[in-house]
């Protein structure tokens, strides 16, 4: 069982959360001309890091907020959690 420290609600079990994937992915700017390759990169390509991974989770059975979680994909250790709009220095 993972325990995730929701920045809004405190420590809760993973059963209350749903996963949202890599949080480092940035959508290309609106109104900016981009190539098919850039769009492909945004929609499909992922680094899928082994080790520290910044990712989105949603506290669906709690406050329903999206949050960022810094977690190790090899050990499942969770280091830090952030509000969705917090900038995270890597």
């Amino acid at each position: 069982m993972l325990y995730i420290n929701c920045p809004h609600c405190g420590m809760r079990s993973q059963n209350e959360f749903s996963y949202g994937g890599d949080a480092s992915i940035k959508r290309p700017e609106l109104n900016k001309e981009i190539s098919d390759n850039e769009w492909n990169d945004f929609v499909y390509n992922r680094k899928s890091l082994r080790g520290k991974h910044l990712e989105l989770w949603q506290h669906i059975s709690g406050c329903r907020q999206w949050i960022k979680v810094e977690r190790d994909t090899a050990t499942h250790e969770i280091f830090r959690t952030f509000k969705a709009d917090e900038e995270v220095a890597s």
Binding site: M1, L2, S13, Q14, N15, S18, Y19, G21, D22, S48, L49, R50, H53, E55, R71, T73, A74, T75, H76
Partner: peptide, 13 residues
């Protein structure tokens, strides 16, 4: 299990 992992072991939920 529903999240990125290289652990080769799962969780009970």
């Amino acid at each position: 299990d529903g999240y990125n992992s290289y652990a080769q072991r799962g969780n009970l939920p």
